[in-house]
Each structure stands twice: as C-alpha cells, then as structure tokens.
C-alpha cells in the first residue's frame, strides 16, 4: 500500500465571524490525484493555503510526510515546502523576470547545482509543459494558458512529491482547460507525485481525479470516485454533475 503523504484531521479556520472551514479531514497517498470540488467561497483555497503554511489553522492538525506542520519552525517548514509544488490560480509568475529566470529562481535559491544542471532542469520542465520556445519571454508576453503552463513548470522544477493546484483551469477557454487537465494527468504519471486539485470545473475533475471530495459550507459533503458521485442521489451533489 502506498504511503500517506498528507493527513488532515478536523481542520478549522475562520476569518472574524466567518467560519470558512468547520471540520475538514482528508488523507492523500503517494501518486494519488485528489480533486476538491466546491462552490466559490466554500473554503477550498483556504484549505490548501493552510496545508502549505500560508495560513495558520485555528484548530486541527496537518501532517505532511508524517510531520505535524504546526510544530515546525520556519526553517523546517521551508525544508518541507521544497518537497511541494504549488500552482496558483493566477500562476503568480514573477513579472520582473523572464520565463527562464522564473524557473531558475528556486534552483538558484535552494540548490548548489552547476549552471549546466540548472539549465538542463529548466529545459526539461519547459519541455514537459510544451513551452520551451517561451524560455526568454516575459510573463506579460504570455497568454493565460501559457502562464498556467509556465506556473506548472515552475512548480515542477524541484521535482516535488506533492503538487497543489489552485483552480488550474479557471479563466481558460474549454480547449485550453482540457489541455491543462490532461497535462496534470500526464505529470501524475511521469512524476508519480500526489496532487490536490482545487477546482469547480467538473470536466477537469473527471479527467484528473482518482478520488473527489466535495466541500460545502466548510464541511466535507461527499467523497468518492467520479462515477460514484455522478450516480449520487443527493440533490446537492447531483446539481454539481448534471
């Protein structure tokens, strides 16, 4: 059986009087794609921001690679973060840097590899997302879909064991959205990394998910495979898929 890489138990997070996450528990094993579906504002993005330590949970426990991240100091949290790739909804490319520099940045900061090794890794990551020709472009010269691909290449550059995707297909046309979804699937096969994919795009969930979890009002409403949820008799779950 594959080892568990993420274990979240009874996570709670609120902003003032707004309880965003009421009680969320989940686990993720190596090589698994878990899609978290939910309406906008249901707390999906807050969940992965708690997971990576960008937000601090009010209650509950998050274990990454069997270590409680609440007990890690900043140095150890950063060591843990090197094993995780994060694709932001907006791609969050550094707009003062070229594509090459964007990908080079974590390598330059976190590794002692030679320039040749770094160049090879950058070329490999860009080849994986099919955008090697964009290597010297600035982010402002890229389309939305290209930015997502470059963001994905940057998330992959450190060869992470877990990938977190925040709304990977939002704002893209249906064809590009499908391309990104298949790219996520290809990356899962190639890198054997576990992934949590936050989305409200059912088509993306259908293509990428090994397992789907639906969040409503900060609680886990349902979970299962795409087929199981597609056949659910719950009206709210049905409204998502039909």
């Amino acid at each position: 059986m594959s080892p568990t890489v993420v274990e979240i138990t009874h996570l709670k997070k609120s902003f003032g009087s707004n309880n965003v996450l009421e009680d969320v528990s989940l686990s993720l094993v190596k090589g698994e794609n878990l899609v978290i579906l939910g309406k906008s504002g249901s707390g999906k993005s807050v969940l992965i921001k708690c997971l990576i330590g960008l937000l601090t949970a009010d209650d509950g426990q998050i274990n990454l690679f069997e270590k409680n991240i609440g007990e890690l100091d900043e140095t150890n949290l950063n060591v843990m973060r090197k094993r995780i790739g994060f694709l932001f909804q907006s791609a969050a490319l550094y707009d003062s840097m070229t594509v090459r520099e964007n990908l080079m940045f974590p390598l330059r900061e976190l590794t002692d590899s030679s320039k040749q090794e770094k160049d090879n890794l950058v070329n490999e990551a860009l080849t994986n997302v099919g955008l090697l020709e964009a290597i010297d472009k600035m982010p402002s010269e890229l389309s939305g879909g290209m930015k997502k691909r470059i963001g994905l290449a940057r998330a992959l550059i450190m060869k992470p064991e877990i990938l977190l995707y925040d709304e990977p297909t939002t704002g893209l046309d249906p064809i590009t959205a499908k391309e990104i979804s298949y790219l996520i699937l290809a990356i899962q096969k190639k890198y054997e990394a576990a992934a949590i994919i936050i989305t409200h795009d059912v088509e993306c969930a259908k293509i990428t998910a090994n397992r789907i979890m639906i969040i409503k009002d900060g609680l886990v409403k349902a979970q299962g495979t795409y087929q199981e949820l597609f056949q659910s008799q719950d009206d709210w779950v049905k409204s998502f898929f039909h």
Binding site: L54, Y94, E109
Partner: peptide, 17 residues
C-alpha cells in the same frame, strides 16, 4: 502589486525567503 498577485506567496511556498 507582487503581494496582491500572489508573487510573494509563490516565493514563500517554494521554500525561498
């Protein structure tokens, strides 16, 4: 601008400073 477009968050989650 870097903050609101999540560029600073992106640096943070990559384990850099």
């Amino acid at each position: 601008s870097m903050k609101v477009t999540e560029q600073i968050d992106a640096m943070e989650v990559s384990g850099t400073n």
